[in-house]
Simulated scan of single mutants.
Amino acid sequence: MNFRQLHQGPELLKIANVWDAGSAVLVQSLGVPALATTSAGLAWALGYADGNHLPIEEHVAALRRIARVARVPLSADSEAGYSDDPATVAANVMRLVEAGAVGINIEDGAGLPALLCRKIEAIKAAAAQAGVDLFVNARCDVWLKNLAPGRAVEEVLLRARDYAAAGADGLFAAGVTAVADIQALVGGQPLPLNVMARPALPGLAELQRLGVRRISAGSAIAEAAWGRAQRAAAGFLQHGACDELFDGAAPYPQINGALNAANADQS
């Protein structure tokens, strides 16, 4: 099943976002139908802050390393495309496609929705010219950035219709958690709905019942890995706490074996 078909059901597409080739091997070993990157986790792994600070050359190189071990469709979070110029954004996205992406996320952030529309149009035109079926997931940050207090649903629906008209293939309403809001987004616009893991988000069965087509972990798994590593390192440095280093850790042979197997597939 290709990446586009995975958004059409019958199962809710669950994306445990990855940030490097090793995390891709780990997640892929759990039997997922697709991989997708977290822009935050990928930027952090390369020593950059999240938020369109990652040089496109570094992003392309990192995605190419992930694509090397990927055995399922791979989508890339392209943030805001690393430019306000739609033609430059399209060129950047096509570099990610050449590195192995079959889908992308592209976000509006705090910018004008009309700008994201122009970016989507430029991306779809470039993909069509290259003969690529690229799934463009339009990320709407109205909830994440509290851009429309008291009228978030109405604002997201307006943007979703514009993004769909520009050629978007999916709507990523990052930060929405309320059942009534999710219902309104599923029924009020034409795109398959993607939500992001949050403590207050309904469970998987409820999301599927509501008609959500995709759920993403976002940066949560990368944040959990950072937190676990930070606690282990602090305990070791402060107290020489060796036992804590191994509490809950994956065994060395398991990690090394998974990576040996992933690389053996290349031969």
Rank of each mutant, 00 (worst) to 15 (best):
Y82T: 11
G22Y: 01
S75R: 06
A250C: 04
V32D: 04
V69T: 07
N137D: 09
G248N: 13
D20W: 10
Q183I: 04
R209P: 08
I215D: 00
A122P: 09
N260W: 03
G188Y: 12
L237V: 09
G47P: 07
G47L: 11
A34R: 04
G187D: 08
R118M: 07
T38A: 10
W19E: 09
G175H: 01
P199I: 09
L245C: 08
M1C: 03
V69F: 05
T38S: 15
L191W: 02
S78D: 10
V132K: 14
L134P: 02
W226V: 08
N52E: 12
A180G: 07
V153R: 00
L26D: 10
L35E: 04
V25K: 02
A21H: 10
Q8E: 15
V186H: 12
A217W: 00
H53W: 07
A127V: 01
F172N: 02
E155R: 13
R228P: 01
L112F: 04
L13S: 05
A217G: 05
D84T: 02
V18R: 05
W19V: 00
R214G: 00
D85I: 07
L157N: 08
W44F: 09
A180C: 04
E98L: 04
L259T: 08
D133P: 06
I104K: 09
K145L: 15
R213C: 02
L134T: 01
P86W: 12
G109R: 05
G150W: 00
P55D: 15
A233Y: 02
V18I: 14
R139A: 01
A166V: 11
T88M: 09
P33A: 08
I215G: 03
A165S: 12
P73Y: 06
E98I: 04
L116C: 02
L35T: 05
L42C: 08
